[in-house]
Amino acid sequence: MTDPAFARTTRPAPPGPFANALTFGWRAVLKFKHVPEQLFDLVMTPIMFTLLFTFVFGGALAGSTGDYLQYFLPGILVQTVIFNAVYSGMGLCTDITKGLFDRFRSLPIWSLAPFAGLIVGDVLRHLIAGGIILGIGLILGYRPEAGVPGVLAAFVLLLAIGFGFGWVFLVVGLLVRTPTTVLTLSFSVLFPVVFASNIMVQPETMPGWLEAFVRANPISWMTTAMRGLLSGTATAGEVVAALAAPAALALVLMPVTLRLYRRNA
């Protein structure tokens, strides 16, 4: 080793925040390549939900499996995106426990870049999972009446929902010590909130107190708007209502995330 590479001082111009975020996004893509199992997790749960609910409960809940699929599919998209967002929180927690985050933090980079990278990974996950569920729905007979523009609009809303909820789990990932705790904690909160919505069942069929809760649940608003966008009946009011929660979450939790990241504990 006469002229070791490490002795050479090359210092490129510092990259912009956007370039940093893209690099972290590239990392997220590499993870898909090296850990394809995560895609399996990601997609199997919603597929199972779709098949199970459509064929087991569909007839009882909506009279026919076809009618039920038409009702259920937009909701399962919302549910999938929210569940998938948990994985970013887990990934973040893993990075912290492995000390990787310390390395990132000791680099002179834009401090939100690692989070932006996680979000890029999220977006990819949401698109992949959403695409697969929609595909299966189409095979089973689901018909989005609003056609391609409706589907595109629905996916934009879907990404907005994923983005908003993503921050919740990033915060959990920063606060909790082990990745499995992120998972169990998040799901124990998510399950009741997601199930007590209009994703699977019409609220009219529920007891009064529950119906009131379901109608006030922002997840119901999102699901209603998804149904509307896919069938072409959405009103502007519905879409705004659907965006309220994700926007509020992002606005409130982004600074919290930064504060926690810089907290230095």
């Binding site: 510092p14 940093n20 492995k98 000390g99 990787l100 310390d102 680099l107």
Partner: peptide
């Protein structure tokens, strides 16, 4: 750091490229 701070899922080369890209290469 005291404990290796690497991305275990990535290859050795990818770990270094990731950091080099973050530095602006």
């Amino acid at each position: 750091g005291q404990f290796a701070s690497l991305d275990e899922d990535l290859t050795g080369r990818e770990n270094l490229i990731l950091l080099a890209r973050l530095w602006g290469f």
